[in-house]
Amino acid sequence: MSPRIVPASSDAARRRDTPLQITVDGAAVAGVEGQTVAGVLLAAGRRSWRAGPSGAPRGVFCGIGACFDCLVTVNGERDVRACRRRAVDGDAVSTQSRAGTGEPR
């Protein structure tokens, strides 16, 4: 199984979700208003979306903005911490890779 969101119908916190949709590298991904970009990606079953210098996959690690593993590009803004940025309906998210970028290793 993969990461997921607690269904609103069985959530002890009694949520009333509003759906939203973002695109990730052009593909539509459904989420819920209020979720972070990382939350949308995780709940859609994605564990990793960024590549480190060797190409090694990275996703959420610290979840609170300290590790910078989860960086994505949102509407053209690079290096946004996905765990800290709220997703907005219509956001165009693209994934980032440091593999083969010629950046110093």
Partner: peptide, 13 residues
Amino acid sequence: GAAQALAKGERVV
């Protein structure tokens, strides 16, 4: 902390 933040803060498991 990440697991807890996701569970408490946005109900993602």
